[in-house]
Design a protein around this nucleic acid. Structure first.
Lengths: 193, 193
DNA sequence: CGCAAATAGTGCGTGACACGCAAACATGTG
DNA sequence: CACATGTTTGCGTGTCACGCACTATTTGCG
């Protein structure tokens, strides 16, 4: 097992992000400003100063969980069997990563649909790009632009899928939206060329 | 012509973004914190309070120009001849939009490679997605996920292209990188499936 | 085991900042 | 020329991020 210190650190980090996201959801997108640093810190059981050792803005704390998840994208792809074609490997890896467990609608809605969080939310998804790009490069043996572009396109597609999944009235599983979005990436429209 | 008011407003906005970016470039990525709101405002010839009417953070001001450019993505695509295949229409529209004029390397480097600006930089590029998606939907007659995913993938590819163009030693025109990146989007790797 | 070094948590102080408010000011209209 | 609408500005306030110094906890080594 890893360091006790490392585990504690991870635990506090998660406590803070969880508290931050929970409080933000409680206040709703309009009342984001009412979520004070003090509240987050005390809800997480740490001092405000410690909160600030982990995150340098409320936004970052709120989106921290999403960022952690995205960062695992590379490992998720590496966990797929080697023989699998690239497109299905990526698709299944992303479906597994982002729907296990099925995300909390309220939380994702807060992160993705609150204007003040837009920048941090994009960052949270985008931090996964580099790790995913590396994993793609390893798998395909390619280097240079293509793995990076593929990774960026995949992440972008998942973002769009998330937006659609949050659309009211739609009650599909998130996996469906991810699959549909990624299929747009892997087989672009040929008819309208 | 449009309102005098509207033009003045636009002029002030541009003065502020220009001043903000210039000062940021002067200090370099490490000294971003030294670029004070007061400096930006006085360099732009407005009061600090007015600066704050236009932008609610230094980061937003610095990246404002990039955001304005991205917002024109939809119009750029609409300006392409109707008969053109979608992929070349998008490619040429984006090349035109982002290389006329050829961007300032120092400015783009500041925006794209400064960690504290990452969130805003992503936002700046991403604001173009919706307008581009609409234009794609108009052109193809499709609706739903595909236009949005395509737009998001295109924007993501351009971001990657920008990163590569900023790579030291490479002295290609930006247009080359954009074309290469977009071709990865429009014809994904079929060999490694 | 016990001690020294490394690392994490905390309190305090400070400078900067975003924004509400209300008053001056500019611009377009009948 | 007056009136309505939109813009700039100064001031005051609450919040925040972070440097610094100190304490507590964990770790590795003799």
């Amino acid at each position: 097992m890893t360091d006790l210190r490392a585990r504690n650190r991870q635990a506090t980090r998660e406590a803070i992000t969880a508290a931050a996201l929970r409080l933000a959801v409680e206040q709703g997108p309009s009342g984001l400003a009412l979520v004070r640093v003090n509240d987050i810190a005390s809800a997480a059981g740490v001092s405000p100063r410690t909160y600030n050792n982990y995150f340098s803005s409320r936004e970052e704390a709120i989106c921290g969980g999403q960022a952690d998840q995205s960062r695992r994208a590379g490992d998720a792809l590496r966990a797929r069997p080697a023989g699998e074609p690239l497109d299905v490997a990526i698709t299944e890896a992303m479906v597994g990563l982002f729907t296990d467990p099925e995300p909390d609608r309220a939380g994702l809605r807060m992160i993705m649909l609150t204007p003040e969080l837009e920048g941090e939310a994009l960052r949270a998804f985008t931090v996964g790009e580099s790790s995913l790009a590396e994993a793609i490069a390893e798998r395909t043996g390619e280097s240079g632009l293509r793995p990076e572009v593929t990774a960026a396109a995949v992440v972008a597609a998942i973002r769009v899928a998330g937006r659609h999944w949050l659309t009211p009235a739609a009650n599909r599983p998130f996996a469906d939206d991810i699959r549909r979005a990624l299929s747009c990436v892997f087989s672009p429209d040929q008819t309208s060329r």
